[in-house]
């Protein structure tokens, strides 16, 4: 059957006056025999290659190359069966975005990706920035702080992580920025030193953020159980947070909080150096904001 098929292809090549006949026939024969060696059925292989006319037309069809190129995806690492993402970061900027499948995909350029150590361990996806590289990058970040005007700019490293719904986050970060956009999940826990944090259109079971000097911005965030934010000198700007238990502590932080809900549903406790407010009506919903040296502004959407 194979010889017959090749002979028909030979006839087709002859009919088209193609000079490199032998070369093409050798190539096709090798391909078919290699597929057979790897367990495919000869008849099925021939069927998949098509009629002799189709095979020969395909060999000289540059459009087929263009069509195949259209299908090339940007190089990404893909992980399935992930339940939790654990990040140990120093300087990387991480963007967490919704995935279009049930797999976690991490995209970065190859050069930057080589600085990340990624492994999947019992449903826990651990993403760590390589230690050898911490030292130098930390030095650069430190120096750029000393020479405040950024004479020694630290390179920006960025990774995009596409995450399906329901995966929990446990993130430790130093100076890298973190953003979560359109994410639906259970628990989000973030420890950050100086990097900024952005949450936009996020739904979470609970939210726990510890931040030292970085700023936090939140837009349209829904938290089912509890929101707990501890800050030192960074600022918080929060628009439309829907949550029944909100607790924000800062030291010198300026805090702006707009709660998505009705004022009369909340027990409110505001504590600042100059002037505190307590409204206790025995409500289930609690809003507690505390800062020593900063300023607090808060309000409700209704």
């Amino acid at each position: 059957m194979l010889n017959d098929y090749l002979e028909r292809i030979n006839k087709e090549l002859e009919a088209r006056n193609i000079a490199e006949r032998e070369d093409i026939l050798n190539y096709l024969e090798e391909m078919i025999l290699d597929r057979e060696e790897n367990g495919e059925d000869e008849e099925a292989i021939i069927a998949s290659l098509g009629t002799p006319e189709e095979v020969v037309a395909g060999l000289f069809d540059e459009k087929a190359v263009v069509e195949a190129e259209k299908k090339i995806e940007a190089a990404v690492n893909t992980y399935s069966g992930v339940k939790e993402i654990k990040v140990d970061n120093v300087t990387f900027d991480f963007s967490f975005l919704p995935s279009d499948s049930d797999e976690v995909k991490i995209a970065s350029n190859e050069d930057e990706m080589s600085n990340l150590n990624i492994r999947l361990d019992h449903g826990k996806l651990k993403i760590e920035q390589e230690f050898a590289y911490h030292g130098l990058e930390m030095l650069k970040v430190g120096l750029s702080r000393i020479f405040k005007n950024n004479q020694i700019p630290a390179k920006v490293y960025r990774a995009y992580v596409y995450v399906p719904d329901g995966i929990e986050y446990d993130i430790d970060s130093v100076s890298g920025n973190l953003s979560f956009e359109g994410i639906e999940t259970g628990e989000i826990e973030i420890d950050s030193v100086s990097g900024g944090i952005l949450l936009e259109d996020v739904s979470a079971g609970s939210l726990d953020i510890d931040e030292v000097s970085g700023d936090i911005a939140m837009n349209r965030v829904n938290v089912e159980k509890k929101t707990d934010i501890d800050m030192t000198s960074g600022d918080l700007k929060c628009e439309l947070l829907k949550c029944d238990r909100i607790k924000v502590d800062g030291v010198s932080s300026r805090i702006e909080m707009n709660v998505n809900g009705r004022r009369e549903d909340y027990d409110i406790s505001i504590s600042r150096l100059h002037g505190s407010e307590e409204i206790k009506n025995g409500n289930d919903k609690k809003l507690s904001i505390e800062t020593v040296g900063g300023r607090i502004r808060y309000g409700f959407s209704e």
Partner: peptide, 22 residues
């Protein structure tokens, strides 16, 4: 070789034998 090249490209893009030849 041909068969192996197609295999190693398959995570990125599926190509046929006749696409690889040219």
């Amino acid at each position: 070789y041909g068969y192996k090249i197609i295999q190693s490209l398959s995570p990125v893009v599926e190509i046929s034998e006749s696409t690889l030849y040219p």
